[in-house]
Amino acid sequence: MDVPLLSVRDLSIEIAGTRVVDGVSFTLAAGETLGLVGESGSGKTLTSLALLRLLPPGARMTGGQIILEGEDLVVAREARMRALRGGAMAMIFQEPMTALNPVRTIGAQLEHVIARHRHFRRVQARSAAIEALGRVGIAAPKRMLREYPHRLSGGMRQRVLIAMALACEPRVLIADEPTTALDVTTQAQVLDLIVRLQSELRIGVLLITHDLAVVAETCVRTAVMRAGRIIEEAPTAQLIASPYEPYTQSLLANTLRVRRAAGEGGTT
């Protein structure tokens, strides 16, 4: 249990000669949720994409190590990375409305991914898909398979994506702003879902968000990122109770002010 599931050391990313991620390091253990907090532009999404080696064209990783269960992903072959993506390491994104292919059914997309990573045949993949959909709380999973994405709400689509991510039994789940594009009620539901599944399946979750309130509810430890660097990392409760960095303090102050104005309490 002491050997971290995922270990990132000194990760650096450059875009057009400018360093946008500088010496980022963190570890993630199995069964643990790590929060990565920062404003837009802080480099948190790029960091997460680097883990899957899916950096957008123009961005290059210029240094660092990414070790998943003892394997260095930086030097892995592309075929190996493809096996890992969606398999041992899965990612869900911020915009559920556009994340699914609009001209294919949910079932087609889900079963395809399952068949690839778990080496199932058609029939097995189908029942695995139904099971995965049921696990994320979708009421009629069998019917859902035949639906097209445009008939589902944002919250539903995000559930489908979570189902897709978890269907192949990942060890690590990266969630990049999974609830930002959803309305408040759905936000709470999706977050609860992630937390529940994470403890059931003992996966490590990297939760990326700009919202401290979200990490307060879900993450055991939190790292704060600013301008490409991690400036502070601590157990979440400690971070919120007594933040060390002025930047963290201001982030906190802004979040809590909104929540207080909305009539909610302070820290968890």
Partner: peptide, 26 residues
């Protein structure tokens, strides 16, 4: 450049698969 292509890659699709299943049909 669409999001669902990014999703496909994030779930392990190769370039030829992306073209065949997610780009050309769309």
């Amino acid at each position: 450049g669409r999001d669902h292509v990014r999703t496909a890659r994030a779930f392990g699709a190769s370039t030829s698969e992306v073209l065949a299943l997610h780009v050309l049909p769309n």
